[in-house]
Simulated scan of single mutants.
Amino acid sequence: MKNGMKKTAAVVMAAMLMGTGAVVPAAENMGIFSQTAIVAEAASVGKVTGLKSKTLSNSEIQLNWSKVKGASGYTVYMRKNGKYNKLGDCKGTSYTVKKLPNATRENFKVRAYKTVKGKKVYGKYSANWNTATNPQACKGLKVSSVGTDSVKLSWTKIGCTNYRIYQNIKGEWKEIGKTTGTSYTVKKLAPATKYQFKIRACKQDDKKTNNNHYGKYSGVVTATTKKSDKITQADIDAMKAELTAYSRNKAEYIKEHYTEFWKYGIDYNTLEEYFVMLENKLVPDESSYDAVYAIPYTQKGLADTIALYKRKLDYLYETRGDVYYVVYIEDCPNGHLVNSNPCWATYFLY
Rank of each mutant, 00 (worst) to 15 (best):
K2E: 11
N3H: 14
G4F: 07
M5N: 11
T8K: 13
A9Q: 14
V11S: 14
V11A: 11
A14G: 15
V23M: 09
V24K: 12
P25M: 01
A26C: 00
A26Q: 12
A27P: 07
G31P: 01
G31H: 01
S34P: 01
Q35A: 10
T36N: 11
T36W: 06
A42S: 14
V45E: 04
V45K: 14
G46S: 08
G46L: 05
K47G: 02
K52L: 03
S53N: 11
T55P: 08
N64L: 08
T75G: 08
M78I: 13
G82E: 07
G82Q: 07
K83E: 07
G88Y: 09
C90A: 08
V97P: 04
A103E: 00
R105S: 15
K109E: 14
V110I: 06
G118M: 03
K120F: 02
V121H: 07
N128G: 12
N128E: 12
W129R: 15
W129P: 00
T131R: 05
Q136A: 14
K139V: 05
K139H: 09
L141W: 06
V143F: 00
V143W: 01
S154K: 15
N162C: 13
N162Y: 15
I165Y: 02
E175W: 03
G177W: 00
K178Y: 04
T179M: 03
T179K: 06
T179Y: 00
T180R: 13
G181M: 02
T185E: 09
Y195S: 09
Y195K: 13
Q196T: 06
F197C: 07
K198G: 05
K198P: 02
I199W: 10
R200L: 06
A201Q: 09
K203W: 01
Q204D: 15
H213N: 11
G215Q: 06
K216V: 04
Y217K: 04
T222N: 06
A223D: 04
A223R: 01
D229Q: 13
K230Q: 11
K230R: 15
Q233I: 08
A234G: 05
D235T: 02
D235M: 03
D237N: 08
M239R: 10
E242D: 09
A245D: 13
R248A: 05
N249Q: 13
E252M: 07
I254Q: 10
K255M: 10
E256Q: 14
H257R: 15
E260Q: 15
E260I: 05
K263Q: 12
I266F: 10
T270N: 07
T270L: 05
L271W: 03
L271K: 08
E272A: 15
E279T: 04
N280D: 15
P284T: 01
S288D: 14
D290W: 13
Y293K: 13
A294M: 04
I295G: 05
P296G: 12
K300Y: 11
T305V: 04
Y315V: 10
Y317H: 10
E318L: 06
Y328I: 00
Y328F: 13
D331G: 09
L337D: 12
W344D: 04
T346H: 08
F348C: 00
